[in-house]
Design a protein around this nucleic acid. Structure first.
Lengths: 181, 181
DNA sequence: ACTGTAGGCCAACGGGTGTTGACATAGCTA
DNA sequence: TAGCTATGTCAACACCCGTTGGCCTACAGT
């Protein structure tokens, strides 16, 4: 069977996201990704050049944090936790970055960039003293990423067992304090 | 120059901890570890059998969380953050587990085990309703590991820039609430 | 029907990996 | 001094990796 170029390309990209997200950068091999698609590894090279560029393509997406301008200031913490849980469970994007960012410097840099450009301004707009905004954004990141790490990567049983509502109820006030108090 | 068996063995172990902690499981090669010690890779095999056993040996340590029985109940949060910062900066042990736990299932299991046996009972003794103890321990783990991730692994600038006192002041109340309220 | 080309496969390369077994040598013991 | 054992080296194996260049083949345009 013959496919269009675009079909194959996007199929490879999808498989790459899955592998990078599940195995990390080193363990995710081009051969395995190609195998998932049912295609020769040479195809991956043809369309993406090399492994690093394939990863860059797989890790490139516009991760737009929800615009919280419309939510009441006192509920910004809980709203944020909710939106983040959606993000994690909807797309594999963040999963990819978290798994690879631990051993791959490019992914770590991308993570820094995302949090600087997305969480930073949000914190700046919300917090009382603008000078403390970066610190507050960093604190929020630590709690959000810590939840993702323990829930989706390390899979600590009690963290996995929590319902969405419980997570929001527990983490909401924490983020609220980090961002606004 | 000739060394004693024990000297070489512990030198290998130290180099292994450093490599595993810096590079993760896959990227840390036996050849590189042996090279750091200035020894033939075959020595590593002779003393530790294979890579997995070397890793098990490098990741085996009794990570005893500080006994917080003597600290006043209202200060348990800040005390815990302080002790954890000490742990992270004193030994490479936790760094190894965090870096490898993301891609290596054995390390993830070890992390789960540590948090279950060490943080679990602590939470059980502190929190008001024993039924919620595991959840509370998990929440505490999420914030502690999230800090370690953003500060020591991803190295988000604002999180790196915080002083020890600032970290304690911000995270202390969070842990206090997770564990006791 | 003929041909050009895009989409895909195959075999191989150079290099790195974990791992193995044979060999060397320093230092203790008889 | 002779020999044994602990400590260590060396070369090689089999495998997997990313990557490359040549070959095939189905299809579209003429």
């Amino acid at each position: 069977m013959r496919r269009s170029s675009e079909d194959t390309k996007s199929a490879i990209l999808a498989a790459a996201r899955e592998r990078f997200g599940a195995d990390g950068y080193e363990k995710a091999t081009i051969r395995a990704i190609a195998g998932d698609v049912g295609v020769d590894p040479a195809m991956v090279m043809r369309y993406f050049g090399n492994k690093e560029k394939l990863f860059a393509a797989a890790a490139h997406f516009d991760l737009r944090f929800p615009d919280l301008a419309s939510t009441p200031r006192e509920q910004v913490g809980t709203a944020m936790v909710g939106h983040f849980l959606d993000l994690w469970e909807t797309s594999e994007a963040l999963q990819v970055l978290l798994r690879t960012g631990v051993t791959n410097e490019a992914a770590a840099e991308r993570m820094r960039e995302i949090f600087a450009t997305q969480l930073g301004p949000l914190a700046a707009r919300l917090c009382p003293d603008p000078a403390t905004a970066p610190t507050r954004a960093g604190l929020a990141a630590s709690q959000i990423l810590g939840l993702a790490l323990t829930r989706y990567v390390l899979r600590l049983p009690p963290v996995m067992a929590m319902t969405r509502e419980e997570v929001v109820a527990w983490l909401g006030p924490t983020l609220q304090r980090y961002l606004t108090e």
